Simulated scan of single mutants.
Amino acid sequence: MATIGLDQLFYAPITEAATTGEETYGTPVKLAKAISAELSVELAEATLFADDGASEIVKEFKNGKLTLGVDDIGRSVAAVLVGATVDDNGVLISTTEDGGTLVAIGFRARKSNGKYKYLWLYRVKFAVPSTSLATKGDDITFSTPTIEGTVMRRNKLDGQGKHPWKAEVDENDTGVDAATISGWYASVYEPEFTEA
């Protein structure tokens, strides 16, 4: 079903275990007011040829690119996402050595039926935000920042022994527990599987 909106943009800081690299997520924090979110995915692909034809084709998630348009990136969010620092006078300082921390990104998209699609991207590393500015002319034009991040699979295995990179749910799908939706931003969603 088509989406007609985007809101509730959150990030959750990630702490990695020193020996395993497994992620532990901090409490989700509001990132900014969302204007746009574009997610593109890159796949690793291989084709095995046998008997003069394609015998097997494998396509796996390699990484993704998330481009967020937001109303503003405040100092505290910029410090977390891209590693900028605030000096003693309250000025945000960006350096060539900046490198933000890994975060999980959550948001929702309103669908045309009034229900929502909820998403968590488990591991995102952002680059310095880009800004486009223009002088004021006869018309008013808003200039807002854009921030781009690389989406990766997480190190922590799920209950099926796989490395998830995204969790996604439509609130009107059958079998979706209401508590899953109501608690979506209380913590980063962890996959649950019944043991066989």
Score class of each variant (00 low, 15 high):
residue 1 M to V: 11
residue 2 A to K: 13
residue 5 G to V: 06
residue 9 L to F: 11
residue 14 I to W: 09
residue 15 T to V: 12
residue 18 A to H: 01
residue 18 A to I: 11
residue 20 T to S: 15
residue 27 T to P: 00
residue 28 P to Q: 04
residue 30 K to P: 00
residue 33 K to T: 15
residue 34 A to R: 13
residue 36 S to N: 07
residue 37 A to T: 07
residue 40 S to D: 09
residue 40 S to A: 11
residue 40 S to L: 01
residue 45 E to D: 10
residue 48 L to H: 04
residue 48 L to P: 00
residue 50 A to Q: 14
residue 50 A to K: 13
residue 52 D to R: 13
residue 53 G to T: 09
residue 59 K to I: 13
residue 62 K to L: 11
residue 62 K to Y: 01
residue 62 K to R: 12
residue 63 N to M: 08
residue 70 V to Q: 05
residue 75 R to G: 14
residue 76 S to H: 08
residue 77 V to G: 03
residue 78 A to D: 11
residue 79 A to Q: 15
residue 80 V to M: 11
residue 84 A to I: 08
residue 85 T to G: 03
residue 87 D to H: 04
residue 89 N to C: 01
residue 90 G to P: 03
residue 95 T to S: 15
residue 95 T to Q: 11
residue 97 E to W: 02
residue 100 G to L: 04
residue 102 L to W: 09
residue 103 V to M: 02
residue 108 R to T: 00
residue 110 R to L: 14
residue 111 K to R: 15
residue 111 K to S: 07
residue 113 N to I: 01
residue 118 Y to I: 01
residue 119 L to M: 11
residue 123 R to C: 15
residue 123 R to K: 15
residue 126 F to I: 00
residue 128 V to F: 03
residue 130 S to L: 05
residue 136 K to N: 09
residue 137 G to D: 14
residue 138 D to M: 06
residue 138 D to C: 03
residue 142 F to S: 11
residue 148 E to H: 04
residue 150 T to V: 10
residue 152 M to A: 11
residue 153 R to F: 06
residue 154 R to D: 08
residue 157 L to M: 12
residue 159 G to L: 05
residue 161 G to Y: 07
residue 162 K to D: 13
residue 164 P to V: 14
residue 166 K to S: 10
residue 167 A to Q: 10
residue 168 E to F: 05
residue 170 D to W: 08
residue 171 E to F: 07
residue 175 G to D: 11
residue 175 G to M: 10
residue 178 A to P: 06
residue 178 A to F: 06
residue 179 A to P: 02
residue 180 T to L: 15
residue 184 W to Q: 06
residue 186 A to V: 00
residue 188 V to A: 07
residue 189 Y to S: 07
residue 191 P to K: 09
residue 191 P to C: 08
residue 194 T to D: 08
